[in-house]
Nucleic acid binder design. Structure first.
Lengths: 211, 211
DNA sequence: ATATGGTTTAACTAATTGGCCAAATATAAA
DNA sequence: TTTATATTTGGCCAATTAGTTAAACCATAT
């Protein structure tokens, strides 16, 4: 039954995604995945030959999904400030729905740098980069953001969004000990992060002008 | 020979630190650790009964070391802005010397939340918190930073420093594809991050005033 | 010298785990 | 119904790996 085939393969993939996200490649057990999918362990090898292949498919899907979340920012026809607000709203909401994703990706990226270089190699980052530059030329100039500062700015934006989830357990522990609620903190962060970054780059002007 | 004992135990501990940082608890192999220490695998069990015990000692040392790096910020008799500059200079330099530390800690934290809660429970965060608040009461007021914004600010500062290392392989890949040098980027980040945060909190005033 | 203590090693064990295979079962086609 | 094909299963194997044990080693004190 073709209907059921897809069902099984999908069930396996979803179970694998869950287990890999929780335990990482090294910590994950094929038996766990089979159990969670409610099928026999041999079926895993029937659909996905090896643990490596299964993991690769899961990772590429997740990593691709994550990178794709950055895309609208490059495309949208918005001012720089609007884009920043838009990004944080969308991206933090995305990570909110996938709380283990950040930590998983960061770990697996580090475990296998080759895969990342491969992935990056397939993307035309140069185009995205120059697009952003061209699109916001005036605004960047107005804020005195030099070409060489763009990497700093980009990673700062990513950091503001990703870190609270990557360090989730630690941040949550500390916040709760201080009487704050993590979910509330995250909800507020969507706006806070945007204003934080906008404030920072507005300020850049002052700094550069003084120099 | 007592001298040699310490030597061996230390050698094991250092080798274990290296391997665990590279592979994580699940990916690390006792044999690898023994090889890197240049000794027999049984010796590992002689000095540290089990893999878990060995890992725990390594983790507690690293995690403690990492948290300790935040301490001078709380103690130093500096203005808020000076503290921010001081922190980024010190902390980024620290991570520069231990490039795998961030990713390792973030992964292991997530793998075993209980350990973190335990660790946090042992620290009097409340005191540090109120100290900071009291110490910089005027400056925080001047920048219109409310009590409830402190978690946002703190995590933002941590994020700016930690993220480039946690996502090291990814950031490095992208930067190098764009013709930038990662080490150079990190070196510049020590100042950039400080000015970025200072700019952001200076701006907070404007935001709050408008509202 | 030799007895004593801790240290180091080689060989081994038990358990886990990824992967394989052959039989069984279901599905669709003739 | 019969045949062919795809799916699912249980049982198995070989490799890996954390941990054990008993013997060898070595420094020091008597």
């Amino acid at each position: 039954m073709v209907e059921n085939d897809k069902q099984t393969e999908k069930k396996i993939f979803e179970a694998a995604t869950e287990v890999f996200m929780e335990k990482g490649m090294d910590g994950a057990r094929m038996q766990d995945i089979a159990n969670r999918a409610g099928i026999n362990k041999s079926l895993l090898h029937y659909y996905y030959r090896t643990k490596d292949r299964l993991f690769n498919e899961v990772f590429e899907m997740i990593f691709g999904h994550m990178l794709k979340k950055f895309a609208p920012v490059f495309d949208a026809d918005l001012t720089l400030e609007e884009k920043i607000r838009f990004f944080f709203r969308e991206h933090i909401t995305f990570l909110q729905k996938n709380p283990r994703l950040a930590s998983f990706v960061l770990h697996e990226i580090n475990r296998n740098p080759e895969r990342v270089r491969n992935f990056i190699g397939r993307i035309d980052i140069g185009r995205l980069w120059t697009d952003i530059e061209a699109q916001h030329k005036d605004e960047l100039k107005k804020s005195n953001i030099r070409r060489e500062d763009i990497p700093q700015l980009m990673t700062s934006i990513a950091a503001m969004s990703v870190f609270p989830f990557a360090a989730r357990v630690l941040v949550k522990s500390i916040l709760e000990k201080m009487g704050y609620d993590f979910d509330d903190y995250i909800e507020k962060r969507k706006e806070y992060a945007a204003e934080f970054v906008i404030g920072a780059i507005r300020k850049e002007k002052g700094i550069r002008e003084k120099a």
